[in-house]
Simulated scan of single mutants.
Amino acid sequence: MVLALAVIAELNGVTDLRPNDTEESPFFYTFKVQCTSCRETHPNFVTMSRFETHEVSGSRGEANFVWKCKNCKREHSANVKAAPASYPQSDPPKTQNILEFDCRGLEFVEFRADGEWLATGLESNTKFSGIDLNEGEWFDYDEKAGEEVSITNVKWEVRRA
């Protein structure tokens, strides 16, 4: 099953919101995970990086995330399909997929925006880094544009791609 991480947010003065996700500085995507066999949801958040791989038991395969359900004892896996897409500024804001996962036996049911995000000044091309979206909003000042910039009303959704 292919799932996507989608976002909708109000971007004011910035565009191209994206996770800071490079081999030198990998982003750890944080999710709640649910077993599709027994529907048990793991009580804790789990993390995965698209640059890490783990062996899948009983196969030659590897995956970015491997998880064994404590309830039904089945092992499941997920892979990030490609680098994250950036979220452009639009008025009104539109929901857009920024990341896709190929999931085997599990579903991601909730996302937490831990980690560093990046954005670019809409008119000025100023590079903003170190953006923290844990509280669902971010405010800064664009020196080149001479105005406040912000990301507000951030909503995450995990959905079928």
Rank of each mutant, 00 (worst) to 15 (best):
G146R: 05
L106F: 02
F139Y: 15
N44V: 08
F51N: 00
E75C: 05
W67H: 14
S25A: 12
V109H: 13
R74T: 12
S37N: 10
G13M: 11
L5M: 09
F45W: 14
Q96F: 04
N125E: 12
K127P: 14
P43W: 08
A85F: 01
F111I: 00
F128M: 04
N153W: 07
E10L: 03
V33N: 06
C38K: 12
V158Y: 01
N125S: 14
A119I: 02
E135Q: 15
N20V: 14
Y141V: 01
V66I: 11
V14Q: 13
C35T: 07
S25M: 09
V33G: 02
P93N: 07
D16F: 14
K81G: 07
W138S: 11
E107Q: 09
S37F: 12
S90N: 13
E116N: 12
G121T: 00
V149E: 00
K81P: 08
N134M: 15
S150E: 09
T41I: 08
T36K: 10
K70S: 12
V56C: 08
D102Q: 08
A4L: 06
D102A: 00
T41G: 14
P88N: 08
T126G: 03
E148H: 12
T120N: 01
R160F: 12
C72N: 04
S129P: 07
E62T: 11
E137T: 11
A6K: 06
V154F: 06
K155P: 00
G121A: 07
V154P: 01
F45I: 10
Y141Q: 07
T22E: 02
A63Q: 08
S57L: 11
N125Q: 08
T36Q: 10
F139H: 07
D21V: 00
H54V: 14
A83S: 07
C38P: 09
R112M: 07
I8L: 00
L122F: 06
E10W: 11
R159I: 13
V46K: 00
F139W: 15
S77L: 03
E40V: 13
P84N: 05
A119R: 11
L106T: 04
W138A: 14
R18H: 03
W67S: 10
H42C: 01
C103Q: 02
V66T: 04
H54L: 09
T30R: 09
R159E: 04
P84I: 02
R159C: 10
Y87N: 00
V7C: 01
G115A: 08
N134I: 15
W138P: 09
N97I: 03
L17K: 03
A119Q: 07
F108D: 03
T41S: 15
P88K: 05
P26A: 02
T152A: 05
K70G: 07
L133P: 03
V7D: 04
F45M: 15
A85L: 09
V33M: 07
N79K: 03
P26K: 00
R50H: 01
A4N: 04
N79V: 04
V33E: 06
S124K: 07
N12W: 05
S57F: 15
A113T: 11
D16P: 14
